[in-house]
Computed example of a mutant assay.
Amino acid sequence: MCSLQTISTIYSIPLAIAAAASTRISNELGAGNYRAAHIVVYAATSFALMESVVVSLSLLLGRNVFGYVFSSDKATVDYVAKMAPLVSITIILDSLQGVLSGIARGCGWQHIGAYINLGSFYLWGIPFAATLAFWVNLKGVGLWVGIQTGSLLQTFLLALVTGCTNWENQALEARKRMALA
Results as ranks from 00 to 15, higher is better:
residue 146 G to V: 07
residue 158 L to C: 07
residue 20 A to S: 12
residue 71 S to T: 07
residue 166 N to L: 01
residue 161 V to Q: 02
residue 91 I to Q: 09
residue 39 I to D: 03
residue 77 V to D: 01
residue 42 Y to M: 11
residue 137 N to S: 12
residue 180 L to D: 14
residue 132 L to P: 05
residue 77 V to S: 10
residue 117 N to Y: 05
residue 27 N to S: 11
residue 25 I to D: 03
residue 23 T to D: 14
residue 177 R to W: 01
residue 126 I to F: 10
residue 116 I to W: 03
residue 10 I to P: 08
residue 39 I to G: 00
residue 163 G to N: 00
residue 117 N to D: 12
residue 24 R to Q: 10
residue 177 R to T: 08
residue 49 L to G: 14
residue 160 L to Y: 12
residue 36 A to D: 13
residue 107 C to D: 00
residue 27 N to F: 01
residue 135 W to I: 07
residue 58 S to P: 02
residue 119 G to V: 15
residue 155 T to V: 08
residue 172 L to T: 11
residue 117 N to A: 05
residue 60 L to Y: 10
residue 85 P to V: 13
residue 108 G to L: 03
residue 161 V to G: 02
residue 179 A to R: 15
residue 31 A to W: 08
residue 41 V to M: 04
residue 93 L to Q: 03
residue 9 T to D: 03
residue 166 N to K: 05
residue 74 K to F: 09
residue 118 L to M: 12
residue 14 P to G: 07
residue 34 Y to P: 06
residue 29 L to D: 00
residue 120 S to P: 15
residue 13 I to Q: 04
residue 18 A to M: 03
residue 65 V to R: 08
residue 162 T to G: 01
residue 153 L to V: 12
residue 127 P to F: 03
residue 37 A to N: 02
residue 86 L to W: 14
residue 27 N to P: 05
residue 109 W to G: 03
residue 16 A to Y: 14
residue 87 V to M: 10
residue 53 V to Q: 08
residue 23 T to R: 00
residue 169 N to E: 15
residue 22 S to M: 01
residue 106 G to I: 01
residue 57 L to M: 14
residue 94 D to Q: 15
residue 163 G to F: 01
residue 39 I to W: 10
residue 170 Q to W: 01
residue 175 R to L: 13
residue 127 P to A: 02
residue 45 T to D: 00
residue 31 A to F: 09
residue 108 G to Y: 05
residue 161 V to F: 11
residue 11 Y to H: 13
residue 67 G to E: 02
residue 103 I to A: 00
residue 114 A to R: 11
residue 92 I to V: 15
residue 60 L to T: 06
residue 112 I to E: 09
residue 125 G to A: 07
residue 5 Q to D: 07
residue 95 S to M: 04
residue 181 A to H: 10
residue 30 G to L: 13
residue 29 L to F: 09
residue 29 L to N: 03
residue 71 S to Y: 01
residue 82 K to Y: 13
residue 45 T to K: 04
